Simulated assay, not measured.
Amino acid sequence: MTDSTPLVTLCQQASFIKSADKLEQCPPDIGREVAFAGRSNAGKSSALNTLTHARLARTSKTPGRTQLINFFQLDELRRLVDLPGYGYAKVPLALKDHWQRHLDSYLSERQALVGLVLVMDVRHPLSPFDTMMLDWAQRADMPLHILLSKADKLNYGAGKNTLLQVQSRVRKEFGGHVSVQLFSAPKRQGLDEAYAKLEQWLMSEIS
């Protein structure tokens, strides 16, 4: 696959590579990848599936099912990554500790990681987990894009108001490397904006 292939086409052709329980199990650390993170049940898997036009990421009515780092190939040098969902009370504490330790290793040491998409339920944005991820991205100087998911659950005015509030807060607390948008998987709202961000991160030339 060449650099001239459109990002949307690459997403439509996305395929599962492997799951990793720890950093050393990840695919070779080359090329570029964008990771998707979010609290359990924030709509992360639905967002990934909508952006790739496939059922790549496992959705479940039981939060906390994504327990591994899952890699999806767009082409030989570009990947999307589904990170474990966090914050679900019924997940055993030892498992939470394991996820936390290996997520930190991935985020801190993975050279191919060029951007992070943080999925938040628009009705419950900026949870402690979300703030932790924003803090990490700021320390690492990692670009971060927020998808305020499930925007179809609010009317237009309420959704727009939440968007403006979140934009104001992250701009004040985390600076200009964080962008925010509304997103709805079932309504396919916000796809163009999300694709534009992924294209910005993934589609520049790779040396």
Score class of each variant (00 low, 15 high):
S40N: 07
G43Q: 01
T9Q: 15
T52R: 03
L10I: 09
Q13R: 11
I69A: 14
L83P: 09
G87W: 07
D152W: 07
G85E: 03
R32P: 12
R39D: 10
S15P: 00
L126K: 05
L48S: 07
F36C: 12
S19C: 11
S46T: 10
Y86E: 10
M120T: 08
A35N: 10
H124G: 02
S15V: 07
S45Y: 07
T52W: 03
F36W: 11
V119H: 01
R78K: 03
T52N: 05
A112P: 09
Y88T: 06
N41D: 08
E33F: 06
Q138F: 08
L77G: 05
Q67P: 06
F72I: 04
L103E: 14
D141R: 14
A42Q: 00
K22H: 13
Q67K: 15
R123S: 04
A42P: 08
D82K: 05
F36K: 11
S127E: 09
E24D: 11
G43A: 10
A47R: 02
F72H: 12
S19K: 14
H145K: 08
N70V: 04
A137M: 01
L126C: 04
V117Y: 00
W136D: 12
S127K: 12
R32L: 15
P6A: 10
T59I: 10
F36N: 10
A47V: 12
L74P: 05
H98W: 12
K96S: 11
K61N: 15
P27I: 00
L10N: 02
K61L: 03
P27Q: 00
A20K: 09
L107C: 14
K96R: 14
M133T: 04
S108W: 01
Q12C: 10
